[in-house]
Nucleic acid binder design. Structure first.
Lengths: 233, 233
DNA sequence: ACCTGAACACCGTTCAAGT
DNA sequence: ACCTGAACACCGTTCAAGT
């Protein structure tokens, strides 16, 4: 970390026990430390979870893996590359959860499934704020250079696109421009998630206990706004 | 900066000319370098503009001000405090622009003014992405500890609140829960602005040329969604 | 093939000493 | 009262040398 204010002046950590190498090593690769690549990614994810993306340092990840400061560079050409790998992992988990949520959704009601997508998105983002942050904010890695992140992400974009198109085809939408609706919907959930992560909610009078319900309400408000109205009262 | 990849290995900058001290100094304070506090804030704002919030370093700001690395700490207790001062400056400018935009808005149409607020918000955020980022994302400074930022911000929150309440009183709204509408509206513009800043727009098929129009369309879609409907076709 | 450990150029921050 | 300049503990990254 660059700001030592957070950690007390006493820099000396407890003696790092060498990871027991011989014990259960399912992979076939020959190595010294276990699958260091994997261990470094896990350490990075942990650091992200503890202090956000910018709390990730290659040296600290190396320390936690029990290797020297230079060792990670045998597996990742730069800090950004390590970040990228962590982001891919987070994106994979995100996608898995969204798709699982959609599997439970009513099959006959595309707009209802669209709603589920929004709710699942918000739920994951708010439960995993720091992981959400690495996959959202470029700056921590180059989204467009990472094939893994891009493909998982494109998959989710396609999913919402198709769901919305089905809702339109089923005559559930009042709005005409699907692209606008899609971007507005995404802006809404992304903005809500980020407001939560960025600590805006208190100043909008939304307490921690309320936030999940508010998330659902806001999605419902949006859905109501794009729905085709059948009557006026 | 922590990642030297961006700057070539040759670290030596050109000789920093001492700022001409004697020349026009309108302030009354006695000093050595001009109003160093002010100069440091300007340097920080410039750095934010060039490379985003995390490109701000106290040492670089000191360098640009022509002072030694320790000098800034006479004016700011920490990097975060300098960041805070830059954020206050950005927030002030933001508020000024929003209020100016509102002054030009139609006085008799509260919902129209609400729309103007959204448009002005997005316009400023997209024209000043990095400045928008420092005032948005805590992590770079503690929003709730800065009286200046908070008051400017609370002012803007109050403004939208009143505008929305007027729209409701004028019977322009279909939605009932004003708090929900307000938060949804904020999430929408915040999310759109951040999608732009965070580089999401290309993967949603929105090109740089389209983005301003899309911003307006998305706001209009939202407004249409919360508006009271008078007829059904 | 993978890891160590020293090195380099950067940080933020502190503090005695200078003006 | 304000600034300098050296110092300290951190970074990311490189690279010879070890196993």
């Amino acid at each position: 970390m660059r700001r030592p204010a957070k950690s007390p002046p006493a820099g000396g950590r407890p003696a790092k026990p060498r990871p027991s190498i011989a014990a259960r090593a399912p992979a076939a690769k020959p190595y010294h430390h276990g699958d260091l690549r994997r261990v470094l990614i896990d350490a990075a994810m942990q650091l992200v979870g503890e202090g956000g993306p910018e709390a990730v340092s290659v040296r600290e990840a190396a320390r936690r893996a029990g290797v020297s400061p230079g060792a990670p560079f045998r597996h990742f050409p730069s800090r950004d590359a390590l970040m990228n790998a962590a982001a891919e992992e987070a994106q994979r988990r995100f996608r898995a959860e969204i798709e699982a949520a959609l599997a439970d959704a009513p099959p006959g009601d595309p707009l209802g499934r669209f709603r589920c997508l929004g709710i699942a998105y918000l739920r994951w983002a708010m439960k995993n704020p720091t992981h959400f942050e690495i996959i959202s904010s470029r700056r921590f890695f180059d989204h467009d250079r990472s094939a893994g992140v891009s493909s998982d992400n494109a998959e989710l974009i396609g999913l919402t696109e198709r769901t919305l198109a089905e809702a339109f085809a089923a005559g559930q939408l009042g709005a005409r421009d699907l692209k606008q609706v899609q971007i507005a919907g995404r802006a809404l959930v992304y903005g809500f998630a980020r407001m939560h992560i960025d600590g805006h909610m208190p100043r909008w009078g939304v307490g921690e206990a309320e936030v999940e319900r508010m998330a659902a309400d806001v999605v419902d408000l949006f859905i109501a706004g794009i729905k085709r109205r059948t009557s006026q009262f």
